[in-house]
Amino acid sequence: MSRYLVITNRDYRLLLSASSVSNLGDGIAMVALPWLATMLTSDPLLIAAVATAQRLPWLLFALPAGV
């Protein structure tokens, strides 16, 4: 029954595909920016700072908003 609803509900399919594309883009960005930093510098501290700065807005805004 639930599989039939997923197949026939266009709005749900659009939401699911948009969410999937968004998550894929976020994952690619999480890999691409630190990788770009490795091409610009060889300092591990700066590369770690790029990865940390990428996650900092989520840490500062999403966690307190959920609480």
Rank of each mutant, 00 (worst) to 15 (best):
L15S: 09
G25V: 11
P34N: 01
N23V: 05
W35K: 00
R3T: 14
G27H: 04
R3H: 14
L59H: 12
V67C: 01
A32H: 02
L15I: 06
A51W: 05
S42Q: 06
L59D: 07
D43N: 13
W58C: 02
D11S: 04
R3N: 15
I7T: 07
L33V: 03
V31D: 09
L16F: 06
V50Y: 02
Y12I: 02
S19E: 07
A53I: 07
T52F: 14
R13F: 04
V21N: 13
T41W: 01
T52S: 11
V31K: 09
I7S: 12
V6N: 15
V6Y: 14
L14F: 04
A37Q: 01
V6G: 03
L24A: 15
A49K: 07
A51E: 08
L14S: 04
D11V: 03
P44D: 07
S20Y: 01
D26C: 05
L59I: 15
S17W: 13
P57A: 11
P44L: 02
W58G: 08
V6M: 09
Q54F: 12
I7Q: 12
F61C: 10
L15Q: 11
I47H: 03
V6Q: 13
G27A: 10
A62K: 12
G25H: 11
W58L: 09
V67G: 08
A65I: 07
P64K: 14
L40E: 08
R10K: 11
L15M: 09
A32N: 03
I47S: 01
L63G: 05
S20P: 00
N23R: 12
G25N: 06
R13L: 11
S17V: 10
L46S: 02
A51L: 04
A65Q: 14
L45S: 06
S2C: 01
I47M: 07
N9A: 05
A32E: 03
M39T: 05
P57Y: 10
F61W: 10
D26L: 13
I28H: 05
A48I: 03
D11H: 09
S19L: 12
S22E: 11
G66R: 14
M1K: 07
M1V: 08
L59F: 11
T8A: 14
P57N: 10
V6L: 15
V21P: 05
L45D: 12
S17P: 05
L63C: 05
L16K: 11
A51T: 04
V21F: 09
